[in-house]
Design a protein around this nucleic acid. Structure first.
Lengths: 225, 225, 225, 225
DNA sequence: GATGAATGAGGATTCATTCAT
DNA sequence: CATGAATGAATCCTCATTCAT
């Protein structure tokens, strides 16, 4: 094989590998950034660290994201995509009691969000909302709105079926959200939300909350019966 | 008027203006710091800004608070922890039902903390806890611990009086805290916690929450058995 | 006694006391400054500390000395005054051998300078000479010159009496000075001049030095004897 | 020339300039720091000045040295401690008399340290030791300890060979150090250690000192006994 | 004269961002 | 495209000095 061919081949191979990596780059960077932002917050995460964790150099990071702020936005956007439609479908088909549905809802949330880095993003979002208003708006629309709608729908189902009293479903949905927010905060602040000498089991808490809520919602025993 | 009196008065007058300012300084600085911390977060608030807003120079700030972290601690003490004992006292004397007590508790919290910049401090703390572990520990000890204890005590009172079922008082206290956290977050993130098209009335929410909780806690009717 | 008289008396008494103190002020400040400069060096000594140690307020210090630099100069000038003439006289009358004279010289230096804050001033002077050239010139003239002359005279006495070889008396005087400088440095630097695991006894060192020097200076045994 | 060779060469050429600069940086910075520390002292030298003199920006300095103190340590290592082992080796091989060895020692010290900015560092250290205890400890360990050990070894060699009386080698080593300290002080204080009207030749002084010392150390003639 | 509250220039250090290679 | 050396704006904190009282 002539030298030129060989060289060309090498170059191609090199380029091919590079391009494969190149396409993966943004994703690797976003993942690294996600990890670090969740772990240390926006301000405390250094650009260089993100690059290092993604296995590239500082300069490369800025090749893909024009600034740290844009990187942050990209991280949030990337990780906030709506898994709600899928989620919603699961609930549409649910056939048990609404009380069970709420417990199931918490379990699913915990396994898919709460116990995941995804909860870190939400916590981060809440922390930095003031500094990134457009991002906050985006989050509100993509996460908060559908989430709240889903929960309100569940509560409404309970009302419609006679399991629950006729309460304000939207207001009640916030009760569920509040529990989630509390758990996320607790998890991603090193436990500041709970006294140092008190243990906190998120799953137990979530079910305690649902239990309390369900009892509170259940229609009072009809006198006649 | 005897000469001595006159002399004394003059001395007092002479020192008065200065000292009045000196005594007012810490308060002015704390207020400025509170405003800015709540508005921009701890890390993003520059010491000099705090000084400027209090109408003094950079150096003066450090005359009263040895460091930015100590300033923050002082803000927390001034606005939150300092109020617990007084708060606690009010509840010790409370003579109504525990359900009423919880409603009152929310009202008081709302008027003294939630509807105040003090709630911004708590939100802030949650946002920056990871980056300032020492402050977090301080907050946990000075605010979270006594706050949680106070709420747990109220729940326990309900159990002891037979108003409530025998639940885990500590766990249940978190329900109340979660509501407060939710409200604080909503308030200090420009409303991200609630869908854009949905109105949110914090006071209504808090009472809705207490109402739900109280119903959920109330001992089931004993007659049937 | 009428009030006015009484008051006047008080005022006078107050004034008297004040004036007495006032006259003492510069001295007290200089003493405080001496202590601190010797202990911590020029840069590390804070003006306020000097004032505090002298029992006055920061402002008062600047009433007597226009700046920290001027204070330093005053301290050096104050503490460097020539005790050399007196010293010289003592030696003129000395009747023993020159070897003894050198040993005595060291003893006197040690008790009057080396073991005193006065040595701190010299050490300070050497450290800050570049930053205070005029002061250095003053020191050179008031301390170094007469000191060196005194020592050279002693060596010359030994030569003249035949105790010592005919060496360069001036050069040899530096040998003595070098020992003193070494001791001062060791004493006022926390011992940097000597390995950490080695003990250093200044007096023993000084006499060891003189002993070595004297032996080195002694005229070689005249062959004839 | 094969293509590969050519390509390699280009790559080398491409990186050459950058890397040459990068490799030169620490040296340039150390030189700048040495100059400035010697000229103005440690505390009075601003980091930015060092950078400026080395022709780089403030930030670059901290790219190579994590703090001003570490920079100082590096300067000491580069200019003093780093040279001891080499120095020591030279003496191990020395075959002449110990008297000659001491004279040689002074010559070497003078040419490598005394007549160099390295002596400025030592002088500096003595001036600032109190304020930077950590640096002082470092210097003591890295410079004073090995230096003193080296000198004591030389003296001991003379004793062992019968050239010198049986004196305390450690104590005697200080005699040599004292001479060096004196010379350094004289050199780096604008000459304060010597009267203004007296000339001072460091080399002559050093040899005068060694001469005196050697004579003082030489074993007394044994014939008489 | 004294006081001590207030000042603000100054200095070490960090880190997002740029750009020559 | 990728790199990583270089930059310099930004920020906390200190302390000599001033000046209203």
């Amino acid at each position: 094989m002539p030298l030129k061919r060989l060289f060309d081949t090498q170059v191609k191979a090199t380029r091919a590998k590079r391009e494969r990596r190149k396409e993966a780059r943004p994703g690797e960077l976003l993942q690294a950034a996600l990890d670090l932002f969740v772990e240390k917050g926006f301000a405390a995460t250094r650009s260089e660290e993100v690059a290092a964790r993604a296995g590239v150099s500082k300069g490369t990071l800025f090749l893909y994201f024009p600034s740290k702020e844009e990187l942050f936005k990209a991280v949030v956007r990337e990780n906030i995509s709506g898994r709600f439609s899928q989620w919603n479908d699961e609930f549409v088909q649910f056939s048990g009691s609404t009380a069970d549905m709420l417990h199931t809802c918490m379990d699913i949330w915990w396994s898919r969000v709460g116990d995941t880095q995804a909860s870190g993003i939400s916590k981060l979002m809440l922390g930095e909302a003031c500094n990134f208003p457009e991002l906050a708006a985006f989050y509100r629309q993509e996460v908060v709105q559908p989430g709240h709608a889903l929960l309100a729908r569940i509560v409404q189902r309970g009302i419609d079926s006679g399991e629950f009293r006729a309460v304000d479903a939207s207001q009640t949905a916030f009760s569920v959200v509040a529990s989630m927010v509390f758990v996320m905060m607790q998890r991603h602040t090193g436990g500041v939300c709970v006294p140092a000498d008190t243990s906190f089991d998120p799953v137990a808490f979530l079910h305690h909350q649902v239990d309390l809520m369900v009892r509170g919602l259940q229609a009072p025993p009809t006198e006649a019966s």
